[in-house]
């Protein structure tokens, strides 16, 4: 049976004056997925997320979250409780302590005692801010503030998380910590939609990727499918003797798109198959008696795919 859709949008459009920020987006995110939204600045990611969070009224189109229609000002309290939204500017009450801030939002989201206290501790532990609970927010570092904002987003245990650029401006260590938190949340069963410019992070975290360009969702697919379909694999091989036999064998293989013999006698192959195809290629070469000394595969990363695809589709 197909998984239930956590997010479903149909022809979702947002127009600001003459600028169409989001153009007829049909988005489908399955429950339990970590969906990464990528695109250049001004592609419409933030506007799309804001509409999903009911912070922006769509000009046209429909949004369904967990099967329930989202109406900007008339959504049910249950639907609002199932949503966690972290905006890119992560607003905070600087005058409050960490504990009071989270306690306030837990109350806003109707988390009652004795569950509330327990949740607060759990969330503070998760974002590693337990020892800072009495500190005033104004005194925290940027990384801590961002983690606190994430804690605020999950304090009511939403089933759908919308994270808009959650790691922007963080150093690599803080980003790593953030990644770990998101992995934990995914393991807890939350559906997460995350937008970011740090594509390596998304490649590590996401199960599916959506690419936005000029307001259009130009691509949306599970990450492995995206790699398979759009990302080239490069296999570098070297043999003990001259590479003529290898070259001849590779030329006949249907999944080899291009090959190049490098000055050091190694061969660079652009390959379009999947892991099984790769294994079959290796087996066939060995069976053909080619004395392989090296067989190493590299995959085009998300950034390359994005750079190729985003501009191509939009233009």
């Amino acid at each position: 049976m197909a998984k239930e859709l956590a997010i479903y949008t149909s022809a979702l459009t947002k127009q600001f004056d003459h600028h169409i920020a989001v153009h007829g987006v049909d988005l489908q995110v399955e429950s339990g997925e970590v969906y990464g939204l990528i695109g250049p600045n001004g592609a419409g990611k933030t506007t799309l997320i804001r509409m999903l969070a009911a912070a922006e009224v769509p000009t046209a189109g429909d949004i369904y979250l967990n099967g329930e229609p989202l109406r900007h000002d008339r959504s049910s309290a249950t639907l609002k409780r199932s949503l966690g939204y972290l905006p890119d500017d992560f607003p905070l009450y600087e005058d409050l302590s960490v504990w009071d801030y989270l306690d306030y939002f837990a109350r806003l989201y109707q988390v009652h005692e004795p569950r509330r206290r327990q949740h607060l501790w759990e969330v503070l532990e998760l974002v590693s801010l337990g020892n800072k609970r009495h500190s005033q927010i104004a005194t925290l570092s940027r990384g801590m503030k961002q983690r606190l904002s994430l804690a605020r987003t999950i304090i009511h245990q939403p089933i759908l998380l919308l994270l808009d650029e959650p790691v922007s401006g963080l150093d690599p260590v803080a980003r790593g910590e953030f990644r770990e938190i998101i992995k934990t949340l995914q393991e807890a069963g939350m559906t997460i939609l995350i937008s970011s410019h740090v594509l390596s992070d998304l490649a590590e975290l996401c199960t599916s990727i959506g690419i936005m360009e000029l307001g259009y969702l130009v691509e949306s697919a599970p990450l492995p499918e995206l790699y398979c379909r759009l990302g080239h694999q490069h296999i570098s091989m070297s043999v003990l003797h001259s590479p003529e036999h290898l070259e001849a064998a590779l030329c006949q293989h249907p999944l080899v798109e291009a090959l190049q013999v490098l000055p050091d006698q190694s061969v660079q192959v652009q390959f379009s198959g999947n892991a099984q195809d790769r294994a079959a290629l290796l087996r066939s070469l060995v069976e053909a008696g080619i004395p392989l000394a090296e067989f190493h595969c590299t995959q085009e990363d998300l950034e390359t795919i994005f750079l190729k695809l985003g501009h191509q589709q939009a233009s």
């Binding site: 939204y85 607003p91 806003l108 989201y109």
Partner: peptide
């Protein structure tokens, strides 16, 4: 101005 009002707006209160 700080953006916190938006967060309150989105709460189920």
């Amino acid at each position: 101005r700080c953006g916190t009002l938006n967060l309150i707006r989105l709460s189920p209160q």
